[in-house]
């Protein structure tokens, strides 16, 4: 019972990170700051949610699947963040050149 509260607390903490990331996406001034907010905060948020869910589920199989999901999302977010940033920087340079 008390353990359940711990897991729920983790999920709640994860949601707070998600909310912070979204707030950053909406409020930060330029693309790079927004990317920064999204990739960092959301990855941590997802990790906390996944951890909490795994605890509530309490089977090794579920925990393993959640770990794989988190790892794949984290890698994809990092790569897509990198691709977007690289693309944006190139577009910037081209504008400067003009």
């Amino acid at each position: 019972m008390i353990a359940d509260f711990l897991w729920l607390g983790l999920i709640a903490a994860g949601l707070i990170f998600f909310a912070a990331g979204t707030l950053g996406l909406l409020r930060f001034p330029d693309l790079f700051c927004r990317l920064h907010a999204l990739t960092k905060a959301d990855n941590l948020g997802l990790a906390l949610v996944a951890l909490g869910t795994a605890g509530l589920w309490a089977t090794p199989a579920a925990a393993m699947k959640l770990a794989v999901i988190w790892a794949l999302v984290a890698v994809s977010a990092a790569t897509s963040g990198h691709m977007i940033a690289r693309h944006a920087r190139r577009a910037w340079r081209q504008e400067d050149a003009l």
Binding site: V68, L72, V75, S76, T79, H82, M83, R86, H87
Partner: peptide, 19 residues
């Protein structure tokens, strides 16, 4: 314009395609 190229994208594809 949207080619997934470069070292990071390459490593990502090597990891993600089999997954």
């Amino acid at each position: 314009g949207v080619a997934l190229r470069g070292p990071i994208a390459g490593a990502y594809l090597r990891l993600v395609l089999p997954a």
